[in-house]
Design a protein around this nucleic acid. Structure first.
Length: 303
DNA sequence: ATTTTGTCCTGCGAGC
DNA sequence: TGCTCGCAGGACAAAA
């Protein structure tokens, strides 16, 4: 389940492969057009795959950017246009792999980019995604929070690792919501990059219950939750590292995953690492949530 | 208008 | 053994 740290690892991996020297996309094959659809519209119009491929043929990646879990590659299209980007969302199970043409195709491969480079052999960048919650697209770049981002991500808030992230302003915005703390953290329009795992981890680190009301939680605690989110994601980044090998641009599940440092997520029944109380599981915002009942007191006014 | 719920997907493991 | 069922979850449309 890629969240911000995993996506950042993939971003760095793509940088190494695509920007270390000039590269060009010489052909694109969409094996499953559903990867071009949106989360709620997986049936794409016929011709979408051809359109997507045609736009990217001859494109040169200029950089690899990220905001929260959204990633994109500004490109110079074949006609010289530099106002578009290849948009990428890894969804639940998306990953990039680097191959040569003779390598067997993984059955979950959804798209293949044939990449030519200034020196060295060409390679294939394959987007593999078992569950097809991921997304690929070409979008116009538009302004958002002072950055140029693909139109599909313009509504996504800055993430806690962004230099321009304003924790104080975000904490105040959270306080104006009428929901639970965890639901608010998962809302990518307030603060981005936090998914189910890091929401649980940040709340535990800050001693805040997932159902705590955003209205009544003191702003100092809200700030602490945001700070904890930033810390746990930075820790994951430093641990997960960028040890991609020749095959994986980077992983999002198997090796190098950051599970070993988790304090509460997936630890139902196991002792809290801080106080030894068994971790409990509950459902919040339709997602499994993990709390230490002692470190995270349940709010009186639950939501 | 804001908040909550359901849906998209696939594979896996539990239960019968 | 082989089937069904529930679960996992990011993002967003639909419902409340």
């Amino acid at each position: 389940m890629p969240e911000l740290p995993e996506v950042e690892s993939v971003r760095i991996g793509l940088q190494q492969w695509l920007l270390h020297e000039p590269t060009r996309i010489v052909s694109v094959r969409v094996l499953d057009p559903r990867i071009l659809g949106t989360t709620s519209q997986r049936t794409v119009p016929s011709g979408a795959a051809e359109f997507f491929s045609a736009r990217l043929v001859g494109a040169e990646p200029l950089s690899v950017e990220r905001r929260g879990k959204f990633m994109w590659l500004p490109v110079r299209l074949a006609d010289g246009d530099v106002t578009s980007a290849l948009s990428v969302h890894l969804g639940m199970s998306g990953q990039f792999r680097v191959h040569t043409g003779s390598d067997a195709l993984h059955p979950h491969t959804r798209a293949v980019f044939d990449v030519e480079r200034a020196s060295g052999e060409p390679f294939e960048l394959r987007f593999v995604d078992q569950r097809i919650f991921g997304h690929l697209g070409v979008d116009a770049l538009v302004p958002s929070y002072g950055y140029a981002v693909p139109s599909g991500a313009a509504h996504i808030a800055l993430d806690p690792l962004d230099p321009a992230f304003d924790g104080e302003a975000v904490a105040r915005a959270l306080g104006r919501k009428r929901t639970g703390m965890k639901a608010a953290l998962l809302d990518q329009t307030l603060v981005s990059g936090i998914g189910n795992i890091y929401a649980d981890e940040a709340l535990h680190a800050a001693g805040v219950h997932p159902l705590a009301s955003t209205e009544t939680t003191r702003i100092s605690r809200v700030r602490r939750v945001l700070e904890a989110a930033r810390e746990v994601m930075e820790l994951s980044l430093s641990q997960g590292g960028t040890s991609f090998d020749a095959l994986y641009v980077n992983v999002n599940g198997e090796s190098g995953y950051f599970a070993r440092s988790l304090q509460v997520y997936g630890r139902t029944g196991e002792p809290c690492r801080r106080c030894s109380t068994p971790i409990e599981r509950l459902t919040v915002a339709g997602r499994s949530s993990h709390v230490c009942p002692r470190c995270q007191k349940r709010p009186r006014s639950r939501r």
